[in-house]
Design a protein around this nucleic acid. Sequence first.
DNA 1: CCATTTGTGTAGAACGTTCTCCGTATAACG
DNA 2: CGTTATACGGAGAACGTTCTACACAAATGG
Lengths: 362, 362
Amino acid sequence: MVHMGGLRDSRVRSGNFMSVDNRKPLERADRVTIRTVAAHAGVSVAAVSKVMRNAYGVSDSLRAKVTGSIEELGYRPSRAARGLRGRTFTIGLLLVDIRNPFLPEVIAGVNAVLAPGHYQAMIGVGEARMQLETSLIESMIDYKMDGLILVAPRLPSEIITRFAAQIPIVAVGYHDPTADGFDTINADDQRGAEIAVESLLECGYRDIEMLSQLAREGHKVSVVRQREIGYRRAMQRAGFGSSAPITNIPLQSPRREETIRKFLTRSDRPRAIFCWSDIDAIVVMSMAAEMGVRVPEDLAVVGYDNSSTAALGLVNLASIDQSGRELGQTATRTLLSRIEGRSEAMHILQLPSLVTRRSLAG
Amino acid sequence: MVHMGGLRDSRVRSGNFMSVDNRKPLERADRVTIRTVAAHAGVSVAAVSKVMRNAYGVSDSLRAKVTGSIEELGYRPSRAARGLRGRTFTIGLLLVDIRNPFLPEVIAGVNAVLAPGHYQAMIGVGEARMQLETSLIESMIDYKMDGLILVAPRLPSEIITRFAAQIPIVAVGYHDPTADGFDTINADDQRGAEIAVESLLECGYRDIEMLSQLAREGHKVSVVRQREIGYRRAMQRAGFGSSAPITNIPLQSPRREETIRKFLTRSDRPRAIFCWSDIDAIVVMSMAAEMGVRVPEDLAVVGYDNSSTAALGLVNLASIDQSGRELGQTATRTLLSRIEGRSEAMHILQLPSLVTRRSLAG
DNA sequence: CCATTTGTGTAGAACGTTCTCCGTATAACG
DNA sequence: CGTTATACGGAGAACGTTCTACACAAATGG
């Protein structure tokens, strides 16, 4: 249903009766520009600009006059105009897709670091499509943003390097310790997987399997792959050979459930599993409940990401926490330092930790 | 106007190595501007601009030349510069906070409508703080974005109206059918609540209560309030008087759980509840499970938003679906039409539907 | 054959900043 | 007193677009 509001009013408004000039489509309120401020304060445009950027060569009295006028007129510099010459004091944040439960944490971390300063974040959502991801990065460059944080980008390293020649870039959740054009901030996914396996071993489980995800296009040394490496290493160290079993769960919906069901009914189903992500772990637990497989009595589960859903009493899933918040904070600080001029690449690894819950049968 | 000799010139220009001038701190790759394209195609800057905007007065041969050069040089217009004069072909999307599970759907809807055109969305996250929300809106205006979609903004209507004088605005999840400066797109929250109550009544429950949320500052006719109205109306229609019981669940963590626990142990605890949001419903179900209150045998639950968590087998929560995706699509189309020049306000209501699951004991 | 229209392209002024030079006034120094 | 620093403030050229106004040619009309 459609309600239209204020019909009578809008006739008057669109009548625009006071102005004969009807050529301009939208007669938005006159903008307060740096010139308005200069005139109001009785100084030059350059002077106002100096005050804004608190540059050298401004007396206290001038500063007072200008800030007074700025306050009084409610002046805000145009980011568009700034972009044409200097900094915009905006950073771009590119997310793969928003459904991933640990992204909100990253955003919160970014905002926490940015809030005290005059910087702001603009977010783009790539929806896991390389095409869209690329064009969003280009847009952010075209807006002359001061720097970019890419979270779990799908793009290959060479392309990111090429972009990094045009704008400072920090990648989060993207392993490439050899990159020298941009920085990377990661949780130590190998170590995280090891911790997960070790916790299962400590609880006495020996029959362990990993549920993973098939390789995606784009980046080859993906986060998932890192976790597989960690899993295998921990298993080998515990004496289970170098090729501990991994089952891949498809992403699309019909085959996905099918694969999980098959796994749960397998006669040689393992006693414990490590899932590359809570997203999968929770679906497995849900289907297990429906099929009468008890967690943790019949199947112990450890997930990854410590999503808010995992913490729910109904779910109670033990999970590896990689503190997205801290990842976001570190990434932001790293980006700001690069904007300030640093040119050698930094590659930071952060230590994840286990949050133990009922699915692990502490 | 200087016509440069095409390719050779540009090669010489990018061969910056002969210049000793090293004062510029960052020597980012030379940008391809509209001038580069004009020179390469051997036409004027104005001509290139015309082709870009496909304005009137361009011959086929000119167009061919220009598009050829654009292609060859990989030219992308600067959004910053565009913002200074014309459109940026970007819309701003302002979200309260990302944790709310139905926001990803809205974003997907927006992107779906935008993708075919040349428009793009930039997202800001207000984190439910009026201060941050305001400054993000201002930033988006300062970037000269073409329009704004505000999702569940906290700001009072008058302030939004004031912003709407500067930029086209569409509000989603914000009830104000009298606003004539901006458009609103909503699910019919009153009707949604009625549907929820009716479904409980149909299952035979008579002893029904609503779990709601205390009024937030900012907007008075909030979404939550609408749902309360619908709940009361449906209860009254069923013959339960005009003031059916409502319990408010606090937001902050210690008092929140405390209140829910108290509710669950109440001697006159109702047989069925309607929760204003899945967020609360799921916590109630989790705590109920821990306390031995069986859902739905002891307590039937209907939530709101049909979040992905509600759909999990472990949760299985019946919920009202308000199709965030469609909301996002409609909002985007509405905004685009306003950008095209419409000036009368539109207020659209969309019909929600019930997704029945185990918590309702179909 | 002149006047008018139509089609095509260009010049150049915005847009709102930043930032490099340059003046000028005052202070410091010899 | 002359010279040189030093502090302060301003002029004006970018930045990369859009878009109005205009020039010119060819086509049309009388």
